[in-house]
């Protein structure tokens, strides 16, 4: 009886406490296409992102924006919004990490940024310059939101282009495996740690190795 009672109480407490773990729900999805920009001596100077927002978020973002022609959104019309975008993204470190030989590189403020309205999708283009150009045999670029508020997906075709990279550089792309959660969802898998790297399956990892 006592055991049953304490069990009930523990279960209840655990249940309520677990619910308290507040987590993010994705409400923005972005299809990302990027370019790594190299200089003549083979060092990376920055990343140029082209991010296409989903149509729900796009419709929300352009709500109430004044345009010269109704329903036509030019770069100029969207310029204030682009400014807000890049300003806000700073807080989230542009959802981008670059590691040169394992060391995290620092990005400066974005340059050459603008928004376009293509089809029913807002597309944000911006360049993130590395504070110090990186010359490295291995560069790992990741684009994702660890809090999963923004769901980043790499574009199907050529999610990363190497612009001006030395000929010996090879690109490997690791996309999150979306079918994985359904297959591996047994509690046992989860408990014994096989799924412990689940979060990593949301990561979009691009590795450039130059030998």
């Amino acid at each position: 009886m006592m055991r049953l009672f304490s069990f009930a109480v523990l279960l209840l407490t655990a249940c309520v406490a677990q619910l308290g773990v507040a987590q993010a729900h994705p409400h923005v999805s972005v299809t990302s296409t990027s370019e790594l920009i190299y200089t003549g001596d083979g060092s990376v100077t920055g990343v140029r992102h082209v991010w296409a927002f989903d149509e729900l978020f796009s419709a929300y973002a352009i709500q109430g924006i004044d345009t010269k022609t109704k329903g036509v959104y030019t770069r100029e019309d969207l310029a204030p919004l682009a400014q807000v975008n890049v300003d806000s993204l700073k807080e989230f470190a542009y959802f981008t990490t670059a590691r040169a030989g394992g060391k995290k590189e620092k990005f400066g403020d974005p340059i050459d940024y603008f928004l376009e309205y293509k089809g029913s999708s807002l597309v944000l283009t911006f360049t993130l310059p590395l504070k110090v150009p990186a010359k490295t045999p291995e560069l790992v670029l990741e684009v994702f939101d660890p809090t999963y508020f923004v769901a980043f997906a790499l574009a199907d075709k050529e999610p990363l282009k190497l612009v001006g990279a030395p000929a010996n550089c090879k690109l490997a792309i690791e996309k999150p495996n979306e079918s994985k959660p359904q297959q591996n969802l047994s509690e046992q898998n989860f408990l014994n740690g096989e799924n412990a790297n689940y979060g990593a399956s949301f990561a979009n990892r691009m590795t450039v190795a130059c030998q």
Binding site: Q23, A24, H25, P26, T97, E142, P146, T147, Y148, E178, P181, Q182, N184, L185, E187, N189, F190, N195, A196, N197, Y198, G199, A200, F202, A203
Partner: peptide, 18 residues
């Protein structure tokens, strides 16, 4: 990164989110 990632999306919760 891995720590933050894992904690954000556990198995069942990951499935619900997906």
């Amino acid at each position: 990164r891995p720590a933050a990632g894992v904690q954000q999306t556990g198995g069942v919760i990951g499935w619900i989110l997906a």
